[in-house]
Amino acid sequence: MTTTRPAAHAPEDLEALLAAAVATADLDAVAALHAPDAVVSLPGGREAAGRAAVRAAYAAALEAGALVDTALGASSTRAVVSGALAMTTSTWPDGTVRTQVARREADGSWVWTRDGSRLRDVEACLPVAGPDASVA
């Protein structure tokens, strides 16, 4: 069986696709919305670099029940596009604003390359120390 990754046809689509993936705990879809070289900020100045590390951080956060607001989705999302790059900004019902950087891929779809806000305050997303820890 082949699964198809969610495709964002515009950078504004990324937020809704992430909310749907989080709501169904589809970690493959979450990872697919991030570029292979994506970097996501984590607590304490740490970062998840690369799809595998991003997937692991989201898995830990989901397991801890820390992404309920993400599954509910943003109240508004907008993008400022410059060529193959975009800054996406999502505003949440509580007034929180999250900003990410997206990139258009060769197939025309959009993926996030940098997210500095979504997991930054989610302590549960940090990996247990060990040889397989994939964040810096």
Rank of each mutant, 00 (worst) to 15 (best):
T2W: 09
P6A: 14
P6G: 04
H9Q: 15
A10T: 11
A16N: 04
L17Y: 05
L17N: 03
L18A: 01
A20K: 11
A20D: 14
A21E: 00
A23W: 04
T24K: 15
D28I: 08
D28R: 03
A31Y: 00
H34Q: 11
A35N: 07
D37M: 02
L42C: 06
L42I: 13
G44Y: 06
E47P: 01
A49F: 04
G50E: 05
R51E: 02
V54F: 01
A56K: 02
Y58S: 01
A66Y: 07
A71G: 15
S75F: 02
S75G: 14
S76A: 15
T77A: 14
A79V: 06
A79Y: 02
V81A: 07
S82F: 08
G83R: 09
L85V: 11
A86R: 00
M87A: 13
T89I: 13
S90D: 12
T91N: 04
G95T: 02
T96G: 10
T96I: 06
V97Q: 12
R98M: 12
T99M: 11
T99I: 13
V101K: 01
R104K: 13
E105W: 03
E105G: 11
A106K: 14
A106V: 11
D107I: 10
S109F: 07
W110P: 00
W110G: 01
W110R: 01
V111N: 03
V111H: 10
V111Y: 03
W112T: 13
R114Y: 15
D115N: 12
S117A: 14
R118M: 14
L119A: 08
V122E: 00
C125L: 05
L126V: 08
G130E: 08
A133Q: 08
A133C: 09
S134K: 03
S134A: 15
S134M: 09
S134W: 01
